[in-house]
Deep mutational scan, measured.
Amino acid sequence: NQASVVANQLIPINTALTLVMMRSEVVTPVGIPAKDIPRLVSMQVNRAVPLGTTLMPDMVKGYA
């Protein structure tokens, strides 16, 4: 199973992502692939993302 990107903490709306905010985990449904973590750094979330939430492409500005 492919690992997805999961929030390692509460990420407030419009926050630029950093490595410490994200972890990889095998979850259902599948979200953004963990291999894309380096690409996500500095991108902003367009909503508040609670701890443990799988990041989906529509949550990150400029990803999709």
Results as ranks from 00 to 15, higher is better:
Val5Ala: 09
Ala34His: 12
Thr54Gly: 03
Thr53Phe: 12
Ile37Phe: 03
Pro29Cys: 04
Pro38Met: 05
Lys35Thr: 12
Glu25Ser: 07
Val20Lys: 15
Met56Arg: 10
Ser24Met: 13
Ala3Phe: 12
Arg23Asn: 07
Ala48Phe: 15
Ala3His: 12
Arg39Phe: 06
Asp36Pro: 00
Pro29Asp: 08
Met43Ala: 06
Ile32Gly: 00
Val26His: 12
Ser42Asn: 13
Arg39Lys: 14
Gln9Met: 13
Met21Lys: 03
Arg47Glu: 10
Met59Lys: 02
Val20Asn: 08
Thr15Arg: 06
Ala16Trp: 12
Thr28Val: 10
Gly52His: 15
Asp58Ala: 14
Thr28Trp: 15
Thr15Asn: 05
Pro29Phe: 04
Lys35Ala: 15
Pro33Trp: 06
Thr28Arg: 08
Arg47Ala: 09
Leu40Asp: 00
Val27Phe: 02
Ser4Pro: 01
Pro50Asp: 08
Pro57Ala: 14
Ser4Phe: 02
Gln9His: 09
Lys35Val: 14
Leu17Asp: 00
Ile37Thr: 06
Pro57Tyr: 12
Gln9Ser: 08
Leu10Ala: 15
Gly62Pro: 05
Thr28Gln: 13
Leu17Asn: 00
Gly52Phe: 05
Val6Asn: 01
Val26Pro: 10
Leu19Asn: 14
Ile11Gly: 01
Glu25Leu: 06
Ala48His: 12
Leu55Thr: 01
Leu19Trp: 13
Asn14His: 12
Gln2His: 10
Val41Ser: 04
Val49Lys: 00
Ala16Asp: 06
Val5Asn: 01
Glu25Val: 06
Ala16Val: 06
Leu51Phe: 11
Leu55Ser: 01
Thr54Pro: 07
Met21Phe: 05
Asn8Met: 09
Ala34Gly: 13
Ser4Trp: 02
Pro33Glu: 08
Thr53Arg: 10
Lys61Arg: 13
Ser24Thr: 12
Pro29Thr: 07
Leu51Gly: 13
Glu25Asp: 08
Pro57Lys: 08
Gln44Glu: 12
Val5Pro: 01
Arg39Leu: 11
Thr54Glu: 01
Pro57Ile: 06
Arg23Cys: 04
Val5Asp: 00
Asn46His: 11
Lys61Phe: 13
Asp58Tyr: 12
Lys61Pro: 10
Val49Leu: 09
Leu51Ile: 14
Gln9Asn: 08
Ser42Phe: 13
Lys61Asn: 15
Thr54Val: 09
Lys35Asp: 08
Asn46Trp: 09
Asn1Ile: 13
Met43Ser: 07
Pro12Val: 07
Leu55Met: 13
Asp36Glu: 14
Asp36Trp: 05
Pro38Tyr: 09
Ile37Tyr: 03
Gly31Asp: 01
Val26Glu: 08
Met56Trp: 06
Arg47Phe: 06
Arg39Asp: 07
Arg47Met: 15
Gln2Met: 14
Gly52Pro: 00
Ala64Tyr: 08
Lys61Val: 15
Lys35Arg: 09
Val20Ile: 12
Ser24Lys: 10
Val45Pro: 03
Val26Thr: 09
Leu10Met: 13
Val6Arg: 04
Lys35Cys: 04
Asn1Pro: 15
Ser4Val: 02
Asn1Leu: 15
Met43Ile: 04
Asp36Phe: 10
Asn1Tyr: 14
Val26Gly: 05
Ala48Trp: 10
Thr15Leu: 09
Val20Ser: 14
Leu51Pro: 10
Pro29Ala: 05
Thr28Glu: 15
Met56His: 10
Gln44Val: 07
Leu10Tyr: 14
Leu17His: 00
Val27Asn: 03
Val27His: 04
Arg39Cys: 04
Thr28Phe: 15
Leu19Val: 12
Pro38Asn: 15
Val60Asn: 02
Leu40Arg: 00
Ala34Val: 13
Leu55Pro: 00
Tyr63Cys: 03
Arg23Ile: 06
Leu55Tyr: 01
Ala7Met: 06
Pro33Asp: 15
Val45Cys: 04
Thr53Trp: 09
Gly31Glu: 00
Leu10His: 07
Pro29His: 07
Gln2Glu: 09
Val60Pro: 01
Pro33Lys: 04
Pro12Asn: 09
Thr54Phe: 02
Asp58Phe: 12
Leu51Gln: 14
Val49Ala: 06
Ile13His: 12
Ala34Ser: 12
Val27Tyr: 02
Met59Val: 07
Thr53Tyr: 10
Pro57Phe: 08
Gly31Gln: 02
Asp58Ile: 11
Gln44Ala: 15
Asn8Asp: 11
Ile11Ala: 01
Ala64Phe: 07
Arg47Gln: 08
Val41Thr: 09
Ile32Phe: 03
Leu55His: 01
Met56Asp: 06
Val49Ser: 02
Val5Arg: 01
Gly62Asp: 13
Tyr63Arg: 03
Asp58Ser: 12
Asn46Gly: 15
Ala48Cys: 05
Ile37Gly: 04
Lys35Gln: 12
Leu10Cys: 04
Met43Lys: 07
Val20Met: 15
Ala3Glu: 08
Arg47Lys: 07
Met59Cys: 04
Glu25Met: 06
Gly62Trp: 05
Gly52Gln: 04
Pro29Tyr: 04
Pro50Gly: 14
Pro38Trp: 10
Val30Ser: 15
Asn14Gln: 13
Leu40Val: 07
Gln9Asp: 09
Val45Tyr: 00
Val60Trp: 02
Ala7Asn: 01
Leu40Asn: 00
Ser24Ala: 13
Ile13Cys: 03
Ser4Thr: 04
Val26Asp: 12
Tyr63Ala: 04
Ile13Ser: 14
Val6Met: 10
Gln44Lys: 13
Gly52Ala: 08
Val26Ile: 14
Ala16Asn: 09
Val41Trp: 03
Arg23Glu: 05
Val45Arg: 00
Asn46Ala: 08
Met22Asn: 01
